[in-house]
Design a protein around this nucleic acid. Structure first.
Lengths: 243, 243
DNA sequence: CGCACACTTGAACCCCCTCAACCCAAGTGG
DNA sequence: CCACTTGGGTTGAGGGGGTTCAAGTGTGCG
């Protein structure tokens, strides 16, 4: 006996996943108008990845692009002996996989339960072809990432440990703008080790530096996963190397 | 008395600057077909900048984009106290100024006599609008720069001084592919100080490390502006952290 | 020639890393 | 309920890679 087609249960992404996506407002997808969202939803495949799962492996053939819709992802590169450099953290709205090359140039791992939207390269290429505004948004995204990368190079090449940690805290505070009321209480979903690998330091130095900021009453640490900025102006001065 | 119009001397860029441009082959301009080169030449303004001249200043309003047609420029960021991080060196074919923001996020200085092509932002926007292939090339360029930036973050955050210098030498050797026969004799138009600011080291460390490579017979240094790679495989292993 | 500038080399120091112990909260299972 | 484990974080002591400071060596150019 057949179930009538009209009430067949479709996977959620085939119904309205893009129209109801909470990340659409600040992701590249906002380049596509409401009336065309069906086209987008048709090629986007939603997927949940668990904390700790690596869903992009440096060197693998780059078959897909991803858009983070919730959760947080760390992007990183490895040296053969295991040294790790985190190149960035991506949260809701971030687009991953920008690359011309046939293989991924970095790895990506969810650091908490994360929702992703997956696009196959050929499908996205079609989409870009049909919606030039999308290509423009991708270019914008790439430019912004480039600017952030240059800022991070300055940090890694020329800043002291204290300046690095201060820069990190301030940038985290700025990063959580789009969603809520800008607050000085900022969540840190990543571990100290991941912060260290992002800042080119060791766990111990990150820990010591944060402890010292706390002793100096610049920050409070209500839990390991949260920091409160008590003296934002001072932290900003420290971050820019003025102290 | 009027000079007849037919033999009026036009600035060179109004005649055939783009068609005769030696850098066109490997720059974003190759996205534009020969028949449309007139459009390109009409908005491109050629300009020579002297060694030491800064033609892009971080923080200034971003009015123009540039294409390097010959020579070399260094791209860098500064901290208020003068600490400098060189984010890259751009030679013939490189496109500069990719950014969405209203202001430049970095400075650019010619490190030798350099020829540039200047495009005003509105003019380039027109061009991009009329030639979608150009936007695609710009996106490609941005992606490639992003990959390079991530590689540099790995270097700055996690590599030792020896690994950094070896990485630099190897990447310099790879960078000079498009023009000539790939050689192990590579030119270094930049000073030790600029290399140091690129690698997140001091002049002294760069100098010592190169001297040691020389003493170990991995390289030769015929002049301050040239290096010969004597043991490329070893340098590549060192660069990737295998030694 | 002699000055300027870039580079090299040496010696002492220091910031951050390494190594190691310890703390603490959240399981887990008897 | 408590002993034990496990994973992340903190703190301390000591060491080392790279910096700082300083002097010396080319080398091009007026």
């Amino acid at each position: 006996m057949h179930r009538p087609r009209s009430i067949r249960l479709l996977p959620q992404h085939e119904i309205d996943s893009c129209a109801s996506c909470t990340a659409r407002g600040y992701s590249v997808c906002n380049a596509i108008e409401d009336k065309d969202l069906g086209r987008l939803a048709a090629v986007a495949i939603s997927r949940e990845v668990a904390k700790g799962e690596t869903f992009i492996q440096e060197g693998d053939t780059a078959s897909d692009f991803f858009n983070v819709t919730s959760g947080t992802v760390k992007l990183y590169k490895l040296l053969p002996d295991g040294r790790q450099q985190v190149t960035g953290f991506a949260s809701a709205g971030h687009f991953l996989g920008l690359a011309v090359s046939q293989t991924y140039a970095f790895s990506a791992e969810a650091i908490e339960t994360t929702q992703l939207c997956r696009f196959s390269r050929p499908k996205l290429r079609e989409l870009v072809h049909d919606f030039p505004a999308l290509e423009q948004r991708l270019l914008e995204t790439a430019c912004n990432e480039l600017v952030a990368a240059q800022e991070q190079m300055l940090l890694l090449g020329r800043k002291t440990a204290r300046e690095r940690v201060a820069s990190f805290l301030v940038s985290r505070a700025e990063a959580q703008l789009p969603c809520a009321i800008p607050s000085d209480r900022i969540p840190l979903p990543m571990t100290r080790s991941e912060i260290a690998d992002y800042l080119g330091l060791t766990i111990e130095t990150v820990s010591r530096t944060m402890s010292r900021f706390k002793a100096e009453n610049r920050i409070a640490i209500p839990s390991n996963a949260e920091v409160v900025l008590l003296d934002r102006p001072w932290l900003e001065s420290m971050a820019t190397g003025l102290l």
